[in-house]
Computed example of a mutant assay.
Amino acid sequence: MSTPSLSALPIRRLTPRDLPACADLSEDRGWPREEHKWGLLLSAGTGYGIDDPDGNGLIGAYVVTRYGSTERPDLAAIGMVLVAERYARRGIGRRMMQNAVEEAGTTPLTLHATPFGRPLYEQLGFEAIGRAEMVVGHLVPAGPLPDITTRPATAEDLTAILRLDTDVFGHDRMHVITRLPAFTDQLRVAETDGEIVGYAGAWPNMETHVVGPLIARDTETAKALIASLGAGTDRPLRTDIDARHTELLAWAKESGLAHIADNDVMAYGVPELPGDWTRRFAPLTVAAG
């Protein structure tokens, strides 16, 4: 029996049962397995994959996380675009991305692109609209901490968190935010006069805790939230800060977080992302926008 051509292999929807195969694919490309993150993405979003015709797991995968209306999403984020090393440079990545664009229809798309991936996305019509800077390290806050109250989030805070998040993000992402108490090791809010003015989570990823989402009224509130999360872990912190937040980035670097990488924020079908970027400091994960 002849092996079918790569263009004939079907792209199917993934389920939580595919989590080990997704982690294997990450490992195949030299990425960490990130099973915890894959678990969130496959439950809050929709995974797509191509099975190896030889029965060796997946040869490609990506995840789409949709926001807004269930029937007609207002925005969708593409992430975790991976192709097995043995199938690299054979058009699999392009085919998956073309499928993502076609299936989206009129729904605007966004993604975070590495320098390696950006040329393909540009060829498909994505445009760079911003940049996120990844910083990692053990946090030792530089200078005095802001006089802003932070505390662990409670179940009673969820309504206020969702209201704030929708206002800042620009679209409803309740299906993601309601998973944060189980997904994060820490979920904290900043409060002023009884009003929640920011919130942030820290979730485990390999030897680090990733800070995200990070939504705050201003830079001082963002600092207070990061510092409170850093005080609650012995692990290094990692976060992807919107490069427009130069003051927060400077403080993070003075506090021991080193620059590791840059990702371009790209969009398709929309000139800029919705919401209020001045209060949106870092995403939950770049894979979910």
Rank of each mutant, 00 (worst) to 15 (best):
residue 8 A to K: 01
residue 10 P to W: 14
residue 12 R to I: 13
residue 14 L to P: 11
residue 14 L to G: 04
residue 20 P to G: 03
residue 22 C to A: 15
residue 22 C to W: 07
residue 23 A to P: 10
residue 25 L to K: 07
residue 27 E to N: 02
residue 28 D to T: 01
residue 33 R to Q: 15
residue 36 H to M: 05
residue 43 S to R: 15
residue 44 A to P: 03
residue 44 A to M: 09
residue 47 G to Q: 14
residue 51 D to A: 15
residue 51 D to G: 07
residue 59 I to L: 15
residue 60 G to K: 10
residue 66 R to K: 06
residue 68 G to K: 12
residue 68 G to L: 07
residue 69 S to L: 00
residue 69 S to A: 13
residue 72 R to D: 10
residue 72 R to C: 08
residue 73 P to S: 06
residue 73 P to Y: 09
residue 79 G to Q: 02
residue 80 M to L: 07
residue 82 L to I: 15
residue 82 L to S: 04
residue 83 V to H: 01
residue 86 R to S: 14
residue 89 R to F: 02
residue 90 R to T: 13
residue 91 G to M: 12
residue 94 R to V: 09
residue 94 R to Q: 15
residue 95 R to M: 08
residue 95 R to N: 01
residue 97 M to T: 01
residue 105 G to M: 05
residue 111 L to T: 10
residue 113 A to H: 01
residue 116 F to S: 07
residue 117 G to N: 09
residue 119 P to N: 06
residue 119 P to T: 11
residue 122 E to R: 13
residue 124 L to C: 12
residue 130 G to M: 03
residue 130 G to R: 07
residue 131 R to A: 08
residue 131 R to H: 14
residue 132 A to D: 07
residue 132 A to H: 12
residue 135 V to K: 04
residue 137 G to K: 01
residue 150 T to A: 06
residue 151 R to C: 04
residue 152 P to D: 14
residue 152 P to L: 00
residue 155 A to N: 07
residue 158 L to W: 02
residue 162 L to Y: 04
residue 163 R to W: 13
residue 164 L to A: 09
residue 166 T to P: 00
residue 166 T to D: 14
residue 170 G to W: 09
residue 173 R to S: 03
residue 175 H to D: 05
residue 181 P to W: 00
residue 181 P to M: 02
residue 184 T to K: 04
residue 189 V to E: 01
residue 198 G to Q: 09
residue 199 Y to M: 07
residue 204 P to W: 00
residue 206 M to I: 12
residue 206 M to E: 15
residue 207 E to M: 12
residue 207 E to I: 14
residue 210 V to H: 13
residue 210 V to C: 14
residue 212 G to W: 06
residue 213 P to V: 04
residue 213 P to Q: 03
residue 217 R to S: 14
residue 219 T to I: 05
residue 220 E to H: 11
residue 221 T to S: 03
residue 221 T to G: 00
residue 224 A to V: 12
residue 227 A to F: 08
residue 231 A to W: 02
residue 232 G to E: 01
residue 233 T to G: 10
residue 233 T to P: 05
residue 233 T to C: 10
residue 233 T to V: 03
residue 236 P to F: 10
residue 238 R to F: 05
residue 243 A to R: 11
residue 244 R to K: 12
residue 246 T to L: 13
residue 248 L to M: 04
residue 249 L to C: 11
residue 253 K to V: 09
residue 253 K to W: 03
residue 255 S to N: 07
residue 256 G to I: 03
residue 258 A to P: 05
residue 259 H to C: 00
residue 260 I to E: 14
residue 261 A to D: 04
residue 261 A to R: 15
residue 263 N to M: 08
residue 265 V to S: 00
residue 265 V to M: 13
residue 266 M to T: 02
residue 270 V to H: 10
residue 271 P to S: 02
residue 271 P to D: 10
residue 272 E to S: 10
residue 272 E to M: 01
residue 274 P to M: 04
residue 275 G to D: 02
residue 278 T to P: 06
residue 282 A to H: 13
residue 283 P to L: 07
residue 283 P to H: 02
residue 283 P to V: 12
residue 284 L to E: 06
